[in-house]
Design a protein around this nucleic acid. Structure first.
Lengths: 345, 345
DNA sequence: CTGAAAGCGCTAACAA
DNA sequence: TTGTTAGCGCTTTCAG
C-alpha cells in the first residue's frame, strides 16, 4: 500500500490539489459537491493527512511537550493522565519526556521538545535543578510554558500547584485538634519549594496554637519509607517524647507506622500519624492512613485548560502569569483519630 | 528572537546551507574546520534543528506512538515509564495516547498517530475491542506494531506479555501447597485473554492436584474492590465452604480481605488470599498481600528493545513475529501463609 | 467557487 | 571537500 497524497485525490477527480486540500479542511468557499466527492475518494484511497507536512507549512504542530520527573510515581502519572485527556479533547497530542529527576536529562528533554517544534511545554521540574537557563530560553523564544506542582519562581510562567503551605498547616492543625501536642515533622534534605511550604505550614500551625517548636523534632532526610522508620527509632533512642508525626508524604508515614507497630506503640492511641499525597494504599492499610489529597487528576485538567487558553493568546508572556493554587483536601482516617479510634476498632 | 535556520548560519559563514546541514550532521566529507565553525555559529545564533522539516524530508520522525488504556492504572504507567526510558536512550520520543478503555477512542488514537507519521506503534488494547480492522491497517501499511500485555491474537505482530496461565497456576498451586483445599477464584465478566488465561491456570492447578472444580466457587464480575466483598458475602450467604481465594488482581483481593475481617474470619488462618499484579499497597497492608508480580518495568524495557530491533529491519512482517512471555513471579506474603502466620503475628 | 504558484526547512543525489 | 538542485506534502496568498 503506497502512500496517498492530496495529489492522488486531485488526479482521480481531475481537479487541482489545492482544491482537494481546501475540501479536506472544510474551507467555506468549496461547494458541497466537491467536498463530498473529495472526501469520498479520500476514504476510498485510504488517504491520511500528513501532519508533518502541514506542521512544517503552518508552523503549528498541535503537539504539546510534557516533561515530568517519572511516570513511575503515581502522582505524576495521574496528572499526565489528566493532561492527556483534556488535551486530546482539544485536538492536541502529547509528546512525553521523563527527566528521571535529573536536570541534565531535563535540559536534553527541553531541547528535544523544542526541536520537535511542540506548540508548548508543560513541565514539573526535576528535584535537583539549580540554574534556570533552559527554562528561560523557552520563554525567550515566546513558546508557551506552564508548570504544575513543582514550578520555578524566577520564571514568569503560569502554574497550577496545590497550596502546600496550607496543606502542611491543615495536617498539623488537624493533629492538634485531635488532641496531639508533641508533633514531629519529617521533611526533605533537598531544597524543594513544595516541601519547604509544607514545613512552613507545620511551623505556623504550631505557633498559632501556642505549641513550642522543637528543632530536634524536625527531621530532614530522603523521601522514603525507610527514613520514616529511622526517625521513629531515633526519637526513641534519644528519648524525645512525641505523640504525633506529620510526614511530607505517605510512604514515609507508612515507615513511621511500621516502626511504631514494631515497637508496640499503638497508632493512633499513643501516636497519631498523618501523611501527604493520598496514595492509593492509604485507605487499605491498617490503621487507614490520614493524609492530604492533592487533587492530582484535577491538577492535570486545570493545567491543560489553562494551557489551552494560553495557546489562544498571541504574545504569551505579556500579561502577568496566572498562578492557580488548588486547595489541599484533608482526608481524615484512622491513623490520626486518637479518641474515636478505640470505638472504631 | 526569530527562528534561525541553516540558511542563516550559511550566510554568516559565507558557505552554502547544504554544507551547513552536513556539518551539523557530522557528515564524514566535511573538514574539521568548517564543522567547528558551523557548530560554533549555530550555538551562537541559538540554532535548533527543525525536526519537522527533517522528518518530512527523510520520512522518519523518530517518534513512536504509545497507545494505552489509561495512565491512571499503575500497571500501564509503569510500563510506559520503562518504554520511554529505553526509547529515549535510543533517540526516540514518545507520542502518548490513552484509549480510556474505549475501542472508538483507540481507533481515533491510531488514526492520529498514523497521521503524525510515527515510526511505529506500541499498544495495549482496550478492554472492549471487538473488530481488529484498525490494527490490521497498521500492519497493511507496513508500519511497525507491537503489543504488550493485552495483544490481539489475529494480528501477526510481536508482543511482550506475561504468562498469565502460568501466573494463575502458580498462585493456585501456592495456595494448595500452603494447605488450602477449597479455593475460590474471582475473575472478569469481560472476555479478555489475560483473565481467561489466569482462570485456566487456576483450573489446571486444581486438576493436577486432584481437587474438585466447583462452578459455584468461580465468580465473574467487574474488576473492583467492591466485587471482592460481594463474593465473600455471597459465599457466606449461600453457605459455600471455602478456605482460600485467588483473585484476578490485587484490589479485588483487598475487598476480599476487608470483608473477611468484617466477618471476623481470620486471614490467613481460616482463609488464605492471593491477588495478582503486585500493586504498591500489597506490602503495606495488614496482613501483607501475597500476589503475582508482572514485572512491569521489565515489560516496558523488553517491548522497547524488541521494538527497536524491529525498526532496524526492512520488511517488518516478513518473519513470524517474536512473542516474548515473561515469567510471572510469585510473591509470598502473609495473606497466604496458613501455618507460619501465627508465629509471624 | 477553483486554479496557480510559492515556500515551510531540511535531506540527499549528483556535480564539480 | 563543497556547491547545486530537487523535492518531501502540505497551507495559503493572489488570481481568475
Amino acid at each position: 500500500m503506497k502512500k496517498v497524497t492530496i495529489l492522488d485525490i486531485a488526479k482521480e477527480l481531475d481537479i487541482t490539489f489545492s482544491t482537494v486540500a481546501r475540501a479536506l479542511n472544510d474551507h467555506p468557499a468549496i461547494s458541497k459537491n466537491t467536498k463530498e466527492a473529495v472526501k469520498a475518494t479520500a476514504e476510498r484511497l485510504g488517504y491520511r493527512k500528513n501532519k508533518i507536512a502541514s506542521s512544517l507549512r503552518s508552523g503549528k504542530s498541535n503537539i504539546i511537550g510534557v516533561l515530568v520527573p517519572s511516570l513511575d510515581v503515581s502522582f505524576f502519572s495521574s496528572v499526565v493522565h489528566g493532561i492527556e485527556s483534556v488535551m486530546n479533547q482539544n485536538g492536541y497530542s502529547i509528546l512525553l519526556y521523563q527527566s528521571q529527576e535529573s536536570f541534565k536529562k531535563e535540559d536534553k528533554g527541553i531541547e528535544t521538545l523544542l526541536n520537535s517544534r511542540v506548540d508548548g511545554i508543560i513541565a514539573s521540574v526535576a528535584i535537583n535543578r539549580e540554574d534556570t537557563r533552559t527554562f528561560e530560553d523557552i520563554v525567550a523564544r515566546n513558546i508557551p510554558l506552564a508548570f504544575f506542582d513543582r514550578s520555578l519562581d524566577s520564571i514568569q510562567a503560569p502554574s497550577v500547584t496545590i497550596d502546600d503551605y496550607k496543606g502542611g498547616y491543615m495536617a498539623t492543625e488537624h493533629l492538634i485538634q485531635a488532641g496531639y501536642r508533641q508533633i514531629a515533622h519529617i521533611t526533605e534534605t533537598r531544597n524543594l519549594t513544595i516541601f519547604k511550604e509544607r514545613l512552613n505550614g507545620y511551623l505556623d500551625a504550631l505557633k498559632d496554637y501556642n505549641l513550642p517548636i522543637r528543632e530536634e523534632m524536625i527531621f530532614k532526610g530522603n523521601l522514603s519509607l525507610e527514613f520514616g522508620k529511622t526517625c521513629v527509632k531515633e526519637m526513641t533512642q534519644r528519648k524525645i517524647s512525641f505523640d504525633a508525626i506529620f510526614t511530607l508524604e505517605d510512604y514515609t508515614a507508612m515507615g513511621v507506622i511500621q516502626q511504631l507497630k514494631e515497637q508496640q506503640i499503638s497508632v493512633p492511641d499513643q501516636v497519631g500519624v498523618i501523611g501527604f499525597a493520598n496514595e492509593a494504599f492509604g485507605s487499605l492499610v491498617t490503621p487507614t492512613l490520614s493524609t492530604i489529597d492533592q487533587q492530582t487528576n484535577r491538577m492535570g485538567e486545570e493545567i491543560a485548560k489553562l494551557f489551552i487558553n494560553m495557546l489562544k493568546q498571541g504574545d504569551f508572556y505579556k500579561n502577568s502569569p496566572k498562578k492557580i493554587k488548588l486547595e489541599p483536601l484533608l482526608i481524615v482516617r484512622e491513623s490520626s483519630l486518637k479518641y474515636v479510634s478505640s470505638t472504631l476498632i
